[in-house]
Simulated scan of single mutants.
Amino acid sequence: MVSKVECSSVIILLICLLKIENIRAQCTKPSFGENRVLTPESYSKESFPEGSTAEFQCATGYVTALPGASKTVTCTGGRWSDLTLQCKKRSCGPLGDIPSGRYTYSPEGDEGLLLGAIATPECDKGYVLTGNNRTCTVKGWDDRDAICEEVNCEPPPPTVPENGKPTEPLEDVYKYQTVITYSCNEGYVLSGHDSISCLETGQFETPPKCIKLSCGVLEVDPNAMTTGARPPYSLGSLVTFVCKTGFTMEGASELKCVESGWSSSPPRCIELQTTTTTRPPTPRTTRPTTKELQTTTTTTTTREPAPKITMPTTKGGVLRKYKSWSAH
């Protein structure tokens, strides 16, 4: 017969075994990636025994990608079931148009409207931007809408250009691409364009200059001659210098009337230095002396004397022929 003490021991052992098995069947706190998180209720639980469930939701800045997907998982045999909930970045949507401007998004495409994307404002040419880049946050686009304001230019100083003036009175402010036209005083001519425009930078182009119509009188070297333009010399006149014979030029041979005056100083004519050339002595021709003539070999040719012919004489009325030769 089993005693009461033995029964009690068996009961206690069974209870302990059941508790041990129950501990083994519990699950740890589940996690399925940073964009899917436990609900506050499930996150506050300290234990997840066999058969218990845990509920998930999308993290801040993310939304459900598959409507109707299950948000709960179950602890079975110490392991969690698969979570079918899928989450994606929330979209901030496109920003409204900026008058005389636009937004560009980074990254490009659909990603440029999702959480973390950046919208950069840009203005049309002739407009200046007031505003900053905007970022897609969990609450939507941050910051305020940018503004594109038309460029304005302040007028140039009224004293510019020297010896000239605007054709019309200057205004306080000029809009983008507005034009100011200039003219020069009598005796001066414009150098450059006669008008300037208000640029997109908010500054006017450089005004033209007014220069004198002519250059001063040239100082010509007394040993030089000039060709080309004659006084008075207008802008662009060309004068060419030539030195007289026996002189060489020092300086530019051609001068031009430019905005700042003559292109260079008039040249000088320097006299050439004469030099004496010494020739080598001419060889003297002399007649041979008597002694030299005596030593000269001469050749004498002796001819044989011609036969001597005597005229025939008549004796007794008979013509006789005689032939005689001189002795050798």
Rank of each mutant, 00 (worst) to 15 (best):
V2K: 13
V2Y: 09
E6C: 11
C7T: 12
C7I: 15
I11E: 13
C16Y: 12
L17I: 13
K19D: 13
K19W: 08
I20Y: 11
N22H: 11
A25Q: 06
Q26V: 07
C27L: 05
T28C: 01
K29P: 00
P30D: 03
G33P: 04
E34F: 11
E34R: 14
V37P: 01
V37C: 07
V37M: 05
T39A: 04
K45T: 07
P49V: 03
Q57W: 09
Q57P: 00
A59Y: 03
A59E: 12
T60H: 14
G61S: 01
T64Q: 14
T64G: 12
A65Q: 13
A65E: 10
A65S: 11
L66F: 15
L66R: 15
S70P: 13
K71E: 14
C75L: 00
T84L: 15
S91I: 09
C92L: 01
P94H: 02
G96V: 09
D97P: 00
G101Y: 00
Y103K: 02
Y105T: 04
Y105Q: 04
E108K: 13
E108M: 13
E111R: 15
G116Q: 02
A117P: 02
A117D: 01
P121H: 01
E122T: 11
D124P: 02
Y127R: 02
G131H: 07
N132S: 10
C136V: 02
V138N: 14
K139S: 15
E150R: 09
V151R: 00
E154H: 08
P155W: 05
P156M: 09
P157K: 12
T159W: 04
E162G: 09
T167A: 04
E168Y: 06
P169V: 05
E171F: 12
D172Q: 13
Y174R: 06
Y174M: 02
T181C: 08
T181I: 03
C184Q: 06
C184S: 01
N185R: 10
G187F: 03
Y188W: 06
V189Y: 03
I196A: 04
S197N: 08
C198G: 01
G202D: 05
F204V: 03
P207N: 07
G216T: 03
V217N: 15
D221E: 04
D221A: 02
P222A: 06
T226W: 06
T227V: 10
G228M: 00
P231E: 13
V239N: 01
C243R: 04
T245F: 01
G246C: 06
F247H: 01
F247V: 03
T248M: 10
M249T: 06
E250G: 08
S253G: 11
E254K: 15
E254L: 14
C257A: 08
V258M: 10
G261H: 07
P266L: 05
C269R: 00
Q273K: 11
T277Y: 15
P281H: 06
T282W: 02
T285H: 09
R287L: 14
Q294P: 00
T298R: 14
T300M: 10
R303C: 10
K308E: 09
T310K: 12
M311W: 11
P312T: 01
T314F: 13
T314S: 11
T314R: 14
K315C: 05
K315P: 00
R320F: 08
R320I: 13
Y322N: 15
K323Q: 10
W325E: 10
